[in-house]
Design a binder for these strands. Structure first.
Lengths: 237, 237
DNA sequence: GCGATAACTTAGGGTCGTTAAGTTAGCCCG
DNA sequence: CGGGCTAACTTAACGACCCTAAGTTATCGC
């Protein structure tokens, strides 16, 4: 009952690292933590003991490199955020239309979340790093690049010019909403996740663009505007 | 260090309940669990021991009424979903315009999340009740009522007629996105939470309405449509 | 009043995060 | 080349946790 090898692999006790290279073990610990997280599915299920055993070391050794479990999880997150940026950047390689870039970045974001749900939960659904500075999120390359795309959309006249930060945060909220629900409630009747993600992202982008266009009407006024538009011929209507 | 009374209050050992009324204790346990959840801030921090002590009972007694900790948390959630429905229904009392009803329900949803963050986390950010049937969410009065409002919007011509479920899920994703981030990352520069929530919800609703209007153009086509609209006089532009 | 049994408690097994204190191995320096 | 310094790690253990098995006590029907 103890030590299911497929999930555990006690990993023969490793040789002591040479004198200067405590950092070496640090990297191995992070990798092992990611592995455990993948296999066990949640940060709670990932025990320090399991990580240690996976590296071939006793639990207290972990604490020579990380203050506590949360610090280890934070270190895992730093790794992951750089990977998120990678996939988001790859998704827009060679695409020039700013709105299309925005769309592809959003889709890549949702895809990343779905491809490693435990990581996504860890990154977004905890209050961890709470007192930690805002830059832990806004300063990541991923968010910075996304902010840049929002700026491009403003320059292209798709969104009203101004500070891109609020729009970026609000678009992120939409992307996070669908990513989060797809991850947390996969059994709901979403249909094709890729399609529903596209719908949500498209609606958010169109919504902000049109909101900038028509100002801030109340609901009856918007209904009237919409009715008038419906009466006109539409390009793909 | 043990038992901070303001958070614990060991609660004098209660008298044994009369014969038929085990259900009585059950209710008290749920109430105590909600209390602990409020005070301690997360489901992990809420220990069975604390709940038991709060009721004035020993930990094993909890297991006479709930199979395990998760079952207790589920019971807390059932309570909360009815409360969510209450506030969402109150928010639309006396409002007849369907889009305005949609808006108010969304705002009430976000407000509910922000007013009890621990509950919201518990309800949405866990995989709990996963194998449990879909109705645990879609069958709640809150979601059913929301679905009704989406239907009303279709009847009013705001959204294209059809199955309201996909639209409802996608609008929920937007509301959840901003609610979730406001709860999990309150330190980000959101500005007034009520305002940012309104922006996100408005963009989602407008976005779906306009998407239904203009069909499914690619990004350059949408840009062209937008430019043409911008060249026309707008009601509140 | 007296069993039957619902409503609890005591005791404990196993896991977890974390710490204190000990031990071993690599490297520097004479 | 060998002695010691200290980085790198281990052993042992504390306290908290979830949960279970087995015992005890109070209430109620008769």
């Amino acid at each position: 009952m103890t030590s299911n090898p497929s999930v555990h692999r006690p990993a023969a006790r490793r040789r002591r690292a040479p004198r200067g290279s405590g950092e070496l073990l640090r990297g191995e610990i992070i990798a092992a933590a990611r592995d455990c997280l993948n296999r066990l599915g949640s940060a709670d299920a990932m025990s320090i003991r399991a990580v240690a055993s996976h590296v071939g070391v006793t639990p207290p050794s972990i604490y020579l490199h990380f203050a506590d479990k949360e610090a280890l999880l934070d270190a895992v997150l730093v790794d992951l955020f750089t990977e998120l940026d990678d996939v988001m950047q790859q998704a827009v390689a060679g695409i020039s239309h700013p709105l299309e870039r925005l769309r592809q970045q959003g889709l890549a974001y949702v895809r990343f979340a779905r491809s490693s749900p435990e990581y996504y939960r860890l990154a977004t659904m905890n209050v961890r790093t709470e007192a930690g500075n805002v830059d832990a999120i806004l300063g990541t390359a991923a968010f910075t690049h996304f902010l840049g795309t929002v700026s491009e959309c403003m320059d292209a006249g798709i969104f009203a010019s101004g500070d891109p930060l609020p729009i970026a945060l609000e678009l992120w909220a939409a992307a996070h909403g669908i990513a989060s629900l797809l991850v947390a409630k996969p059994y709901l009747p979403w249909g094709d996740p890729e399609v529903v993600a596209e719908h949500v992202l498209r609606a958010a982008a169109i919504g902000h663009a049109v909101a900038d266009l028509i100002g801030d009407p109340d609901c009856p006024q918007f209904s009237a505007w919409l009715a008038a538009e419906q009466a006109r011929p539409q390009p793909a209507g």
